[in-house]
Design a protein around this nucleic acid. Structure first.
Lengths: 141, 141
DNA sequence: AGAAATTTGTCCGTATGTATC
DNA sequence: AGATACATACGGACAAATTTC
């Protein structure tokens, strides 16, 4: 068979199927996925395609791969039975003292009080990004 | 042809070199990187290896790829032709080591390499805000 | 408008290196 | 030491989006 990939690419279809099995606990949390060669046989895809699919799940932190061992499902078991889906953001604000780099940027003395706002973005409980925004403290009148 | 990868894998070495050129403006912001086949010739690596290197930079948001067009360096066209007085943003990426606080958030070891993206927003030349976003660096594939 | 060339995207098959058991 | 499994790398083929003529 040539290489037709109308619509969804093969590796995405395979990733979707594996994701379904993991979220439905067909592949239980903490257990090993089938080996790459087993998946190669099951999906009739090449190893490269299987690895592309697994790489997608790895980016979602849905699996974790260990060299020479295998690929584990759901490594972070924050299993509070909370069916969270979309990203969740925690926002926190605090005062910090300007280090030399920030002081130079804001053109203030080192040690000047700055306001730091920190946003922690989580996807499925795993931290995806930490954003910190620094501003000068607002001069009150 | 054998496939030795002593020490650093080739795609990582190539990614490091391309990252250097971009941050040193040897490849100016907004410009196109050499095509995959050109990079194949220059580094004498297969196309797959070149694409692996570029994928790393894409994960760092250091480049952006468009199907049929090419891969752009530093996709942050913040300066248009119009001399606006609005806020101007300078974006910069660098790799930093996780301090204890970030390590705890990302659930990684202290010293793990993170990607930091810093945006400095200026209004009329004065720094108004400094934003730093931290993300995990993609491990492999 | 249309065909050709260019460039990235997907997929395959294979070979070899490296880590774990 | 041997077997198993993932990691890296090569080369070839065709698909799809864009640009060029």
């Amino acid at each position: 068979m040539p290489t037709p990939h109308y619509g969804q690419p093969r590796y995405r279809v395979i990733a979707d199927e594996l994701r379904r099995r993991i979220t439905n606990a067909v592949i239980p949390p903490g257990s090993l996925l089938p080996t790459e060669s087993a998946l190669t046989a099951e999906f009739r895809a090449s190893r490269g395609t299987i690895r592309q699919a697994i790489a997608l799940l790895r980016d979602e932190r849905l699996v974790a791969t260990e060299h020479g061992r295998g690929t584990y499902a759901n490594p972070d078991h924050s299993h509070k039975d909370s069916p969270e889906e979309g990203p969740q953001v925690e926002r926190r604000q605090r005062q910090v003292l300007a280090d030399p780099e920030l002081a130079a940027l804001f053109a203030v003395e080192v040690g000047t009080t700055l306001v730091e706002q920190q946003d922690v973005t989580r996807i499925n409980g795993a931290v995806r990004a930490v954003a910190r925004v620094y501003r000068l403290q607002r001069a009150s009148q």
